[in-house]
Nucleic acid binder design. Structure first.
Ligand SMILES: [Zn+2]
Ligand SMILES: [Zn+2]
Ligand SMILES: [Zn+2]
Ligand SMILES: [Zn+2]
Lengths: 156, 156
DNA sequence: CCTTGAACCTCTAGTTACTGGAGATCCCAT
DNA sequence: ATGGGATCTCCAGTAACTAGAGGTTCAAGG
């Protein structure tokens, strides 16, 4: 049986995050010691690994929840799991397209600026007027994810 | 002079968002009618357009704020504007790379599943164990943005 | 057996960039 | 004068965590 800190180390998940997953019902309430501390078994380790892997692949928690439900009973058809994955793929492709076009605009913007004062800056000018852009509109990537510095992950 | 609803229509920004930008100091407090309603002039329209365009290009509000400050005095050197833009470009490229690798994993995952029960599903299996992945780790895109359905933008 | 210090507990609040609603007020046209 | 849409302020909620305060528990050393 592992304490929460060991589970954290084992899965590369921060301790408050584990408790958060428990709060929202992604992880079942674990056993407790007499002194009220959480104790986890292998099942929980696997479940948390599954969750983290899904998150790293960009699935939103709602999808992770659905995938966990599915994986909890192996007799069911996997059709909906595949559907979720295909949706996620589409989402990733949407973001890729939008980022690619964004990259182009940013490059143009930066290339055109020769330096000097703000009055002559092509970057500022381009930002002020979308008419300078190639794309007729920019679609927001709409990520639905986290906002954390990349100071994570250190798997066992 | 425009009312807030007209400014909203003019710039494709929702009314509460305009008030939010005012709250956080991105838009200056506008004039008011005797009845306390906001009235905007062309300057404000331009400023809000600038903000929205920056946001659509993926700049975080902190950067938008810095860019606005710069564009407010045209005599300064544009070096820091260019630096912000180059940072943003790097960020976009980072996300592109990470999404491309994600796309690959998702494709593999989906291709390998022949359908059937969850017990045999390659999607579930791949999610359960990162060892099935090609990439040695997935880097989170770390977006710092919004979470909204794409029900926006309808420029004048 | 007792002490110490790291790990753990609960609870609250903050992050980003907005969005939505309640309940009250205003503006304008008929 | 009146009706209805636009606007006002304030508060709460979204995603997915993260951080901190203030108090307990565990395990090892003496
Ligand atoms: Zn420049
Ligand atoms: Zn543009
Ligand atoms: Zn399958
Ligand atoms: Zn993986």
């Amino acid at each position: 049986m592992l304490g929460i800190g060991q589970l954290s180390a084992e899965t590369g998940t921060k301790v408050p995050t584990i408790r958060y997953y428990e709060d929202i019902g992604l992880l079942p309430e674990p056993e407790r010691t007499v002194g009220n501390q959480r104790r986890y078994g292998q099942q929980q380790v696997d479940r948390l690994r599954f969750i983290r892997h899904c998150r790293d692949m960009g699935f939103p928690l709602a999808d992770v929840r659905a995938l966990l439900d599915l994986s909890d009973d192996p007799e069911r058809s996997c059709a909906s799991a595949d559907t979720i994955a295909r949706h996620q793929l589409q989402e990733v492709e949407r973001r890729l397209a939008s980022l690619a076009s964004l990259r182009q605009e940013l490059c143009r913007m930066i290339d055109q600026c020769a330096g000097g004062t703000v009055a002559d800056c092509r970057v500022i000018e381009s930002l002020a007027d979308h008419a300078h852009c190639i794309a007729d509109r920019h679609t927001t990537p709409a990520p639905t994810e986290q906002h954390v510095e990349p100071t994570r992950r250190d798997p066992a």
